[in-house]
Amino acid sequence: MKESPGVVDLLGVLAYAELSAYARMTEDAATLAPSLADRAALSELAVTEYAHFRLLRDRLTELGSDPDEAMAPFIAALEAWHAQTRPSDWLQALVKTYVGDGIAHDFYREAARHLDPSIARLVDEVLVDEGRSQFAVERVRAAIEADPVASGRLALWARRLVGEALSQGQQVASARPELATLLTESLEEGKADISRLFAKLQEEHNKRMAAMGL
């Protein structure tokens, strides 16, 4: 028996997000990392992202859905997000990994809140931090301490990231009504409003900014 379209949409968008995160982190590690230690650390995070993709792909198959078909509706939006937010240096890459991926993960967690417990546990498992926060925060804060001028530049970059992320999220929700339903159902009964969800995502973004000292 196939799972509901909303669940397949959620697992499909999350699977492609994890696959594209793996590819992006691998590229950033090879081209932007300033040291071998940084390259190794980011590459390790990338491997974890690929493992998460495999878990999602396998679950989609178990649910009777074709993983490629489940991911296909989200390729254009996620590729556009990455194209519009391609980092130009190592610090921008770290901010994107922490801030950009963080707000997307909040989006997916919210959608999974009231799903079958086995699906919700899978989403939690693939969105586990795995040291991403500590890795990015430590390096960004150290860079700002060494060069305070970098703070303004990175703060502007982070604002651009969240703006693009929210825009893409709204487009995805509008294009996939079943996924939008999961999101609105996760809000308080009687007050379901997609704008409230995005306000909640903005709050979490502000906490991440503070953690980095931006």
Rank of each mutant, 00 (worst) to 15 (best):
L36E: 09
R139D: 07
R159L: 13
Q168S: 14
S20G: 10
G6W: 06
T61G: 10
R86K: 14
E27R: 15
A158E: 07
P34R: 05
E185C: 08
M209K: 02
D147G: 00
E185H: 12
A46M: 12
M25T: 04
L45F: 10
T26H: 03
F198H: 08
A37R: 13
Q92F: 05
I119R: 03
G169E: 08
L94D: 00
P117F: 02
T26G: 11
A23S: 11
K2V: 15
T184N: 06
D68P: 00
L156T: 13
F53D: 01
L122I: 00
M212F: 09
A30S: 12
A104I: 11
L56K: 06
S186P: 06
R132E: 15
P5K: 08
V126C: 02
Y16F: 14
S65C: 12
L14W: 03
A37Y: 02
H105L: 11
A112Q: 02
D38M: 07
A77T: 02
A180C: 00
P117A: 13
E188V: 10
S4H: 12
V128F: 15
Q84E: 15
A192R: 14
A210T: 12
E204L: 10
F53Y: 15
A33K: 05
V13H: 00
G12Q: 11
E3L: 13
I75G: 04
R54Q: 05
P177T: 09
S4I: 11
W81M: 11
L10T: 02
A15S: 12
E164M: 08
L78Y: 01
D9L: 09
H82I: 06
A136F: 08
L36Q: 04
G100T: 00
A173K: 04
S186N: 10
V47T: 11
K200F: 03
A136M: 10
M1A: 10
A158I: 08
P73D: 03
Y22L: 14
F74W: 09
E189M: 01
L60S: 01
V126Q: 02
K207Q: 14
D38C: 08
D147F: 05
Q168L: 08
Y16I: 15
R24Y: 06
R24S: 15
A40W: 12
V95Y: 00
L161T: 04
A142T: 09
T48S: 12
S43H: 09
A120W: 02
A72C: 08
V126R: 03
D129Q: 07
M1L: 09
L11T: 07
